[in-house]
Amino acid sequence: MFARMHAPAPLPVEPTRKVSIMAEEAAAQGPRPVVSYLKLPDGGDPYLEGQKCGGCGAIFLGERGTCSSCGASDRLEPTRLSNQGELYVYSIVHRSFPGIEVPYVSAIVDLDGGGTVKGNLIDVEPEPEKIRMGMPVEVVYKVAPRKDAEGNEYMTYYFKPRS
């Protein structure tokens, strides 16, 4: 066989569970957001937050001080992104790091009202015939099937087809 570039390298060794007092406290506080732009308001539903430039309207994910589209500083305001959008493009990943379940569908989704997000597309067969670019999807929130080294849980997001 040809050896190919970009063969996945091993993931860091699966963390051993160390239950410390701190971890127990963290667990009591519920799952943490998987990325900074996933917001978990007290008593409210999770949502994705964009940073919208007041100068040009570009939407970014994650905190930043300056807009890389127009260069405006201090004009970025948090904006709640829609949980609905459409599938822009995808790839079906069949080979990944050891320990990561394959196949999975890596999807790029344009959210209604602005903002583009990458994530796993679920509840669809990982076959090109079953996935239509442009199809409506929604953002759903679930506790991730992975924990960190301290045993903390994380809230993550997925895309699923919307009828």
Partner: peptide, 18 residues
């Protein structure tokens, strides 16, 4: 970036997929 590995959870950053 801390937390848990994102590959295969938030899509793929692997070059073949990109």
């Amino acid at each position: 970036g801390g937390g848990i590995p994102k590959e295969g959870l938030l899509g793929s950053q692997l070059m073949p997929a990109v």
